[in-house]
Computed example of a mutant assay.
Amino acid sequence: MRSEVAPANAELPVVDASMAALGQPDYRIGPYDLLSVTVFQIKDLDREVRVDNSGRISLPLIGTVQAAGKSTHELQDEIATRYARSYLQNPQVTLFVKEFASQRVTLNGAVKKSGMFPMSATRISLLQAVSLGEGLTETANPRNVAVVRNVNGQNMVARFDLLAIRDGQMADPVIVGNDVIYIDEAKGALYFKRFTQMAPILSTWILYSNR
């Protein structure tokens, strides 16, 4: 396996062109996203609804609406149009994505709660991602944190030092959906090595190391 050494201020690679667009106004709603729908001055119509696995939501009076694949503005306009069609005059509908459940990050290793977590935004920082696991365990080694990202079918690993990030000595990298984060144990270098070898990793960036 060939390794490439990048400077300490290097960034994780962008997954693809569509991922680069995430977080912009044209974000497309996906299955399991949690949406907040507000109709101005009509509290009975306000709802938090989760997009089902077929990409639909259900709202009072207007029933089922296809949500997945639409931008928030497109869906907001469609809901307003359907309410105006039969029930309301000039409804003012506000919609935002409260939970980007279609974008998930996986936490493993020395965190208090490991697993797959929905992201509260299409992009979060590494420190924010670690907080989803309720923080580090007492045996964690914050200087040895790996982020695995799949780029065009190729798994890539970057290594970070959380203490350096917290002290402002290193930028807090952006984490995107489907990233896998592993926090090493203080005495678990062997497990860290095994983790980075779980998949056929073709390139490795050592972004920061200060053990």
Score class of each variant (00 low, 15 high):
Leu132Gly: 01
Thr137Pro: 05
Asn155Tyr: 13
Gln66Pro: 06
Ser131Gln: 11
Ile42His: 13
Gly153Trp: 10
Leu107Thr: 02
Lys113Ala: 01
Gly133Cys: 07
Thr106Leu: 02
Lys98Met: 08
Phe160Thr: 05
Asp161Val: 14
Val180Met: 04
Ala171Gln: 14
Thr94Lys: 08
Gln66Phe: 10
Val180Gln: 02
Phe96Val: 09
Arg143Ser: 14
Gln128Gly: 07
Ala129Gly: 04
Met156Leu: 15
Ala146Ile: 08
Gly153His: 07
Asn152Phe: 13
Asp172Tyr: 08
Ser114Gln: 08
Asp77Ser: 14
Phe117Gln: 00
Val65Ser: 02
Gly177Tyr: 06
Ala121Leu: 08
Asp167Tyr: 12
Ala171Phe: 14
Leu59Asn: 05
Ile62Met: 02
Ser114Asn: 07
Val176Arg: 10
Leu136Lys: 12
Asn144Asp: 08
Val151Tyr: 11
Gly133Met: 05
Asp44Trp: 02
Gly109Met: 03
Asn141Lys: 14
Gly135Val: 08
Gln89Leu: 15
Asn53Gln: 14
Thr94Glu: 09
Asp172His: 11
Asn155Asp: 09
Ile62Arg: 00
Leu127Asp: 07
Ser125Asn: 14
Leu107Val: 05
Gly177Glu: 06
Ser102Met: 04
His73Trp: 05
Gln128Met: 08
Arg166Leu: 15
Ala121Glu: 12
Asn53Asp: 10
Asp77Asn: 15
Thr122Glu: 09
Phe96Ser: 11
His73Met: 08
Ser125Leu: 12
Lys113Thr: 00
Ala129Met: 06
Arg143Cys: 09
Thr94Ile: 07
Tyr87Asn: 01
Ala146Arg: 04
Gln169Glu: 15
Ile42Phe: 09
Asp172Leu: 10
Ile175Val: 12
Arg149Gly: 05
Asp44Leu: 03
Thr72Lys: 13
Lys70Arg: 13
Ser120Ile: 05
